[in-house]
Amino acid sequence: MTTHIKNIPEAGVPFPISEYGRRLERVTAAIEKAGLDALLVTSHGHLRYLSGYHGFGAYFAPFPLIVIPGRQPIYVVREFEVSTVQAESWINDIVPYAQQQDFAPVCAEVLRRYGLQAGKIGFELGCWNLAPADVNGIQAHLPDMEVADATRLVASVSAVKSPLEIQAMREAMALTDIVVRTFQSSLREGVEEVQVCMNIQQELFKAGGTLYEAPTLVFGERTKLSHGSPSRNALRKNDPAIMEMAGVPKHGYVAGLVRSAVLGRNPETESLHSLAEEALEYAISVIKPGVTTGEVDAAARSVITRSGRPKVFRHRTGYQTGIHWLERGNLSLEPKAVERLEVGMNFHMPMLLFSETGRICGCSEQVVVTDSGAEILSSTPHTLYYA
């Protein structure tokens, strides 16, 4: 591992430079196949995938990594963040801009420098961290530039993970399994959601990990909240409990899980969870190379339809994951999706169902597509836990 800035604790890229070279080579091939002259990568997850830098400094203007076939990538970043980008990425060519209004002219000048002022340039138009004003600003300086939507380009490459990435997902799952076991062992009458969350954070700290931001952890009536954050709400007898959380290792890969529990008995939760398990297991059973993402989603929906309770399922069956939890624009297991599964793809499959009273329960798995089907990464069962 190498960085431009030395002797900074916990800095540097988490993988060998050769791994980033492999990723860049595959993205470059995809750029050429798409007929693009260059690609501006702006989503945080895709920036981290290609450079090592987490990208979070780009909170008021983009930090595009400009990928041009035949050249080393160029990072256009805010001047304030240059030292962090140098320390946490392997990119050598870093071009700074000072203020938000400087972004568009500086980025346009970089493109012009490489003769791309009239080129066909790919932008991640459907991802976070790129506003219409950013694209319009660059185009105002380069009126002959052709803007192309390259939202899925990096996603389609990063969907197929290398052996190093699969190992990273295993390490992430080992931490998330600690989250699940601590969640389950903490459930008792009177315990508050925030107390359980604190227990989880302590166990992750001991294991060398951290808790992924914005955890979902709710009890009782608060299970009606689809992404409810922990509160001072206490668990009562026969209450349901649900979590969607993940432990995060230093390299930043995330393997989140959904797990549900009941303190005592709760027929409504038990019935719905049984259906969630059946739908999840059937969807996993159809996974194999060549199957489309839409066919996996259809498998889950067929179970829900046969149950006679179609309104309990209100979302997609799963999505590509890895660096961070997910990125907008990544592959999705949803109706009519046409991407074909390949060996090495990794998906989070949260089967979350809504009861007739509005409560949510369910379960999930993280799966890796293999030659023969799907490998489940978690060692904690997705069955309903009785506390």
Results as ranks from 00 to 15, higher is better:
R48S: 13
V67M: 10
P62R: 03
G137I: 02
Q139I: 04
G45A: 11
N92Q: 15
M173Y: 02
S229A: 15
V286R: 11
E270T: 01
V160W: 11
G220T: 10
L352D: 04
D37Y: 03
S364Y: 02
R236I: 08
K250D: 15
T321E: 01
S226A: 15
A29G: 12
A131C: 11
Y114K: 05
Q101V: 11
V135K: 02
D297Q: 09
W128Q: 08
E244V: 10
G21P: 03
T210M: 13
H315V: 04
L39C: 10
R48F: 15
E334S: 09
P73C: 14
I68K: 11
M145T: 03
L36G: 02
E339P: 02
E365M: 06
A374D: 01
A131M: 14
H348S: 07
R236P: 05
V82D: 05
V76Q: 06
D149L: 10
G190M: 07
V191F: 01
A29K: 12
M345G: 04
F15I: 12
F354G: 05
A118Y: 04
G21R: 15
R236M: 15
E109D: 14
P215F: 00
L187Q: 03
C127P: 00
A98W: 01
I94G: 09
G35S: 06
M245F: 12
S186K: 04
P143D: 10
P230Q: 04
A108Q: 02
P69N: 12
E375H: 07
G21K: 14
A104P: 05
I284H: 01
E342N: 11
T42M: 08
I376F: 09
V367S: 07
H54R: 12
G55C: 12
L204Y: 00
